[in-house]
Design a protein around this nucleic acid. Sequence first.
DNA 1: GTGTGTGAAACCTTTCACAGCA
DNA 2: TGCTGTGAAAGGTTTCACACAC
Lengths: 229, 229
Amino acid sequence: MAKADDLDSETTAVGETRRAATLRLSLYLRQLERLERIGRARVSSKELAEPLGLSAAQIRKDLAYFGHFGQAGVGYEVAVLQSSLRGVLGVDRPWNAALIGVGNLGRALLGYRGFVDRGFRIRAIFDRDPALASKRFHGLEVRGLNDLKRLVPKLQLELAILAVPADAAQEVANRAIKAGVVGLLSFAPTAISAPASVAVVSVDLGLQLEQLAFRVSQQRANQRKQSAG
Amino acid sequence: MAKADDLDSETTAVGETRRAATLRLSLYLRQLERLERIGRARVSSKELAEPLGLSAAQIRKDLAYFGHFGQAGVGYEVAVLQSSLRGVLGVDRPWNAALIGVGNLGRALLGYRGFVDRGFRIRAIFDRDPALASKRFHGLEVRGLNDLKRLVPKLQLELAILAVPADAAQEVANRAIKAGVVGLLSFAPTAISAPASVAVVSVDLGLQLEQLAFRVSQQRANQRKQSAG
DNA sequence: GTGTGTGAAACCTTTCACAGCA
DNA sequence: TGCTGTGAAAGGTTTCACACAC
């Protein structure tokens, strides 16, 4: 009754607008984890906003968009808000992932604590290079791409982390999707196309450095302008 | 004369609005590099837009914001636009960087071709762990953080890549900044605060996976809704 | 008093549609 | 004709300011 109605209107809205807010939810979750570690039970939007360089109003708007988590005059309960946000983000349960590409970057990602700490478990590793086949890293044996079809369902791998060269990325993505993966985190410096039913997040490390170079250049240009004018 | 006026008004505008456009310039540059490799001399906004999933109008607006690079009825010259964008982004010259944190992730970044290919050179590596001191990776000897002060000016290191744990990130950032670095690329899952004169770009790998989990969850919720309603 | 949740206003970004040039 | 560059419109996001709940 009321419950079903609420749920329906909520999820409809979530899917359609306010994309920007969702990008910040993980940041809020990080702050809440920190606050819990230092023993804080409650927090205000202002306290949450400050270390992130955001405005208090923005935090309130973002959170209000997903529900009523706070108490007027008091603030937010750290524990409650934390588990609410985990639910919204879908990280209130573990996720199984495949790692495809066991080169330099792939091996580093395999050992990266930040993934495991946040509930993401790499359960199988793949590489097209036969020289790597049967080698083991972090207790996992390197498999050929042909094994995707069998292992994705068997190990219930929902996500795939792609650490392969740009020219192989699209084909590898296609094979992972065909095997049943529904989310891709790609580190290849190229755009990946996928059906609408598959979520894709791209992290291009070179592009981030370029963005940094751009900002430094801009800053210098502004400084020159100021000292000149 | 006219030149100085133009330049002034351009740079004023660049620094003040259209932040979103600048985030896409690197993507355009990637496409242009690909087009050059396959021997294309000209490209239209539509052709540039398609593989990136953007609209042609957006490409034209973004580019027009930084100058008049195209020719009506013809399109853009691949070579000209490429070097223009390199100039805008500040990547028409090499950048020297320090790598701080020579753990799992740090070593992977040190060997990452994508940085060198785009003109970013890691010229010195640092770690606080004395057990690593004097070890060599990719031809570079690991230095203690105390050496920042001396080596940043000597090797003209403008950027620092931070691959250190969250709890060390802010202090390491402070020391790098004090030593003279003007741009930080941080991989630590925490916010970094820095003076306005220093540019900071943060890449939080765990956060990217969380974003992916969120999108997959959303998609599933929408599918349930559709098949139910 | 304190601090959330929220309309309204301000601001920014994207899309539309077309004048104008090759 | 083909395609850019750009005002105007539409759409989305952030900030403001305050009613209201504790």
